[in-house]
């Protein structure tokens, strides 16, 4: 028997999630800077020095600054308030998918140290739980709906570092995850299209 689940990411065409930059891609490079990301204790628990040194070797990143990136994307200014418009869209989606909206939304950090986030974490918020969508082949459960920030765009990998562009970093993203309730390709197609 086939069992299938989906994780759908939808970018929102609002301003970025935590600053006033436009959500668009850009080919214009204004400036470059270089950073190192270090695993934190939350990731490692008790720090093993050898593991630490090994991980540091691979963690030099070069960031390309575009006209639609500001100090927030550069991790040089605290995030602004969560974009209202993006939040409203996410809430609407949650209601349309019959999900239960949490009593209080908390933005939290998901540690990501491959350099795709200048901060070393992705800001993400669980908006709603326990939704569903009814299809021709039966009900598909949607355990979580999240609102999160898009990662920076990987441009190239070279000796001694990975190059990322900041244009995409911070674009709002609604993440809809379904349970593995789909039984055939037709149903997957239907769910994907409806969402």
């Amino acid at each position: 028997m086939v069992k299938c689940g989906l994780e759908i990411h939808q970018q929102l065409a609002t301003k970025k999630l935590f600053c006033e930059c436009n959500s668009e891609l850009s080919e214009e490079i204004l400036y470059k800077f270089e950073r190192v990301l270090r695993p934190t204790q939350s990731e490692l628990g008790e720090i093993d020095r050898a593991a630490l040194e090994e991980s540091l070797k691979k963690r030099r990143f070069i960031y390309e600054v575009t006209p639609n990136s500001c100090l927030v994307e550069a991790d040089e200014e605290p995030p602004h308030e969560l974009n209202r418009e993006a939040l409203e869209i996410a809430l609407k989606i949650a209601l349309m998918l019959h999900a239960k909206i949490v009593d209080e939304i908390h933005v939290m950090r998901k540690i990501v140290i491959d350099g795709s986030n200048t901060s070393g974490f992705q800001r993400t918020a669980l908006i709603a739980v326990d939704g569903y969508i009814d299809t021709f082949f039966g009900r598909v459960r949607i355990p979580t709906i999240c609102l999160e920030e898009e990662a920076a765009r990987k441009i190239e990998e070279k000796d001694g570092g990975v190059v990322y562009r900041l244009d995409r970093l911070g674009i709002p993203l609604v993440e809809i995850s379904t349970s593995p309730d789909m039984k055939n390709g037709e149903q997957v197609k239907e769910v994907a299209e409806r969402i």
Binding site: D103, E104, I105, M108, L126, C146
Partner: peptide, 23 residues
């Protein structure tokens, strides 16, 4: 507790790593 959190709310970290506020 988060400083800006409503006073009736508690904050929980779920198994999937997400934090949510609950009454």
């Amino acid at each position: 507790k988060h400083e800006f959190s409503d006073e009736n709310i508690i904050v929980l970290k779920l198994d999937n790593g997400y934090n949510i506020g609950l009454i």
